[in-house]
Write a protein that binds this DNA or RNA. Structure first.
Lengths: 344, 344
DNA sequence: GGGGGTAGTTGACACGTTTCATTTCGGGCG
DNA sequence: CGCCCGAAATGAAACGTGTCAACTACCCCC
C-alpha cells in the first residue's frame, strides 16, 4: 500500500541505491549474487518503478501520443493500429487521445502533452490551416507528424493519401463500366478531401459530360440519405446511372435510400464509395470503394516520428503520400464473383 | 529550445522559485505587482511546467486511463465518449489505450500505468476471469473500474448492461410480431454476453417452441454471412421466420447473405441485432437492435472511479447494471414509419 | 612483497517541482 | 519610541531516480 521506493529495496537487499538502479537498467557490472538479492527484494516488496522520477531525471518520456480527430471514425482506429504496431517495434508506448473535432479539447490535450514532455506527437489537427499550437510544440523540441493532412509546412513531416488519384480511379472505373451520367455526392467542398476527390473524378471523365454535383453539408449517413433522395427524385432519363460518394458513410446512406425506394443497386444505379471501411464490404450490396492504406499511414507516421526522435541531427522532414486503391465489389459491377458463384 | 525551468523564471522576475510556484498554483498571498512580473517572465521565456516534477512531488498523476478491449468496435468508442465527458467534468484527463484483445499488450499497458502512478483505470479486461493484473493495481492503490464485465469481485466497482434482459426484449418483440420459428445466431457461447442474450431469448419464448441455434465461432460480419447461409439453406417450411443475432455484426452478415440470395427482409425473414451500432440504422434495411446505453456506461464508470479517487475512505464499491432498450426498425417490422411515409 | 589493474560497489548530486517554516519589511498602536 | 503584527517573500528540504567519480577489495605479476 505505502508506496515503496528504490531506497527500501536497497535497504532490504543490503546494497546501495546505485546498485539497485544498476540492476534495473542492466547498466554497469553487477555480480550475479548481488543481482539475485536485489531482484528478490524487488519481488518481495512489490516494488514498482516510479516513472515520474525517471522521466524527471531523463528529461523526456518514453511515450508518443496520437491525437485523433475522431475515434468513432474507423479510419482513425485503423491508423491507430498501424501506429501501435510501429511503436511496439520501436520500443515506445502510444497514448491515444481524441479531440472529437473540438479545437478546445485538442488544445487541452496538446498543452498536457507538452507538460508531459512527450517524445513526439502524431496528429490530425482540427484546423488544417491554423497550426500555431503545433508550432509551439516543435519550438519546445517535440516533433510533430501530421496525419492525413497535407503540409506546406517545413517544420514537420506528414503522411497523407492522394485523394485526387482516388477520385480518378473511381471515375475511370465507372467510365469503363459504360456510365456516362455520373453524380458526385458529398460535401462540404471546404474539406480538402472532398474537393480533391471531386477534382480527380472530373479529371478522369476528361472531355465527356461532367458529373452532376449533389452537395451535402457533411459526410454522414443521414446526409447520404438526403443525397440519395435527391438523385432518385430526378426524372429517369436525367437520373445518373452511377454515384461516386465522397466517403462510405454517404454511400451507405445513398444505398439505403435507393433500397427503400426500390431502386436496384447496381442494376439501376451503381455506387462507389471512399475509405473502404469495414462496413462497406458488409453492406447488403457490398460496396465498391476507394481504399486508403490506413494502417500503413499510421505505421509510416510513427516511423517518421521515431526517426526524428532518434536522429534529430540528420533528420530531414519528409512528406509521404500514399496511393489509394480501388476495390470493386457488387455495387458497381453487375457480374461480381460473389454473384457468379451463386449462379451455379 | 533549451528547456526553461521555474528557476529561470524566478531569476528573470527577480523573485524566488517559491514565489513563482505560488503564482502558478494561486496558492498563498502574492502581491499583484509581483504576480504580474512573474506572469510576464513566464510569457517571455515560454515556460512550460514540467509535469514529471510535479507528479514526483505530488506522488500521483492527474490522469485516468481507459484500456479498451477493441477500439475498432464502435461500442468502445461510445463508452470512451461518455468517459471523456465525465472526466472533463471532474477536471481530469483521460488517456486511451487499446489492448486489441491481446493479453500481452494489455499487460504491458497496465504495467506502464502502474509506473505512471495513474489516478485510476477503466478497463474491459481481455480475460473476464483471470484478473491478477488488476488485483495488483488495486494493491498499489490504483482504483479499477470494470466496464461491461460483471464482477464477483469486491475489490472494485463495475458497470455493465443486463444482457439477459436484452435478449428477453428481443424475444418478446418477435413473439408479439407473430413469429414462432425463431433462430439465434451467434457464438461462441463461452462469451458471457452471447450466453446471456440467448438465455434471455429462450426465457421470453416461455414454453413455446425453443429457438434454433446457429452457432458461430466469433461475432464478425463474416461469421454472420455463414449463419445467414445456414439459415437460407434450410427447407422453407423449416426455415425460421426471424433471427435474433448476438450482435449487429452478425446481423449485418445475415442481412447481406439474405439480400444476395433473394430472401426478403423483413418479409420472408425478420432480423433483430444487438448493440445498435451506428451502422445498424444505416443498413440497407434498417436493423432493429437492442441498444445499450454506451455513453452512459462510460460516464457512470468514470464517476465511480472519481468518487473512489476523491473519497477513498468512505467509498463503497458498487456494481451498476443498466437496462438495455429495444429499437424497432424496418428489419423486424413490416410497417415501419419510413415505409409508410413513402406510400403516399 | 609491492605496484597496478579490475570487477564490484558506493554515495553524493542533479533533475524541477511544491511545501512550509522562517525571515523581512513596513506600519499601526500603546 | 519601541513593540508587535500581518502580509509578502524566501530558502531549504523532499519527492525517486540515474549517473559518475571515487573507493574497496582482490588478484596477478614482476
Amino acid at each position: 500500500m505505502a508506496t515503496v521506493s528504490i531506497k527500501e529495496v536497497a535497504l532490504r537487499a543490503r546494497v546501495s541505491v546505485g546498485t539497485v538502479s544498476n540492476v534495473l537498467n542492466g547498466r554497469s557490472t553487477v555480480a550475479a549474487a548481488t543481482r539475485r538479492r536485489v531482484l528478490d527484494a524487488i519481488a518481495e516488496l512489490g516494488y514498482i518503478r516510479n516513472d515520474s522520477a525517471r522521466q524527471l531525471r531523463a528529461g523526456r518520456s518514453r511515450t508518443v501520443a496520437m491525437v485523433a480527430l475522431d475515434l468513432s471514425n474507423p479510419f482513425f482506429t485503423d491508423v491507430m493500429h498501424g501506429a501501435e504496431i510501429a511503436a511496439e517495434h520501436g520500443g515506445v508506448n502510444v497514448m491515444i487521445f481524441n479531440s472529437g473535432e473540438d479545437p478546445v479539447r485538442e488544445r487541452r490535450h496538446l498543452d498536457m502533452l507538452s507538460q508531459q514532455r512527450v517524445l513526439g506527437v502524431l496528429i490530425t489537427p482540427v484546423n488544417e490551416a491554423h497550426d500555431a499550437n503545433l508550432d509551439q510544440l516543435v519550438e519546445h523540441g517535440i516533433p510533430v507528424v501530421l496525419v492525413d493532412r497535407g503540409s506546406s509546412n517545413f517544420h514537420r513531416c506528414s503522411v497523407a493519401v492522394d485523394d485526387v488519384l482516388g477520385g480518378h480511379l473511381a471515375g475511370e472505373h465507372l467510365r469503363q463500366q459504360g456510365h456516362h451520367r455520373i453524380a458526385f455526392a458529398g460535401g462540404p467542398f471546404s474539406l480538402r478531401q472532398v474537393a480533391d476527390r471531386h477534382a480527380g473524378l472530373t479529371a478522369a471523365l476528361g472531355d465527356g459530360p461532367q458529373p452532376r454535383l449533389v452537395t451535402t453539408s457533411n459526410l454522414s449517413v443521414a446526409a447520404g440519405r438526403g443525397a440519395g433522395r435527391e438523385i432518385t427524385d430526378l426524372p429517369v432519363d436525367e437520373r445518373p446511372t452511377a454515384v461516386f460518394c465522397a466517403n462510405d458513410l454517404i454511400a451507405l446512406g445513398v444505398l439505403q435510400e435507393m433500397t427503400t425506394r426500390g431502386v436496384r443497386v447496381p442494376h439501376d444505379v451503381a455506387i462507389v464509395g471512399y475509405d473502404d471501411i469495414e462496413f462497406a464490404a458488409a453492406a447488403a450490396v457490398p460496396l465498391s470503394s476507394v481504399r486508403q492504406p490506413r494502417e500503413q499511414l499510421g505505421r509510416a507516421a510513427t516511423q517518421l516520428l521515431l526517426e526524428e526522435v532518434n536522429e534529430p541531427a540528420t533528420h530531414q522532414h519528409r512528406h509521404v503520400v500514399f496511393r489509394p486503391e480501388l476495390v470493386v465489389r457488387e455495387s458497381s459491377s453487375p457480374s461480381t464473383p460473389a454473384k457468379r458463384s451463386r449462379r451455379e
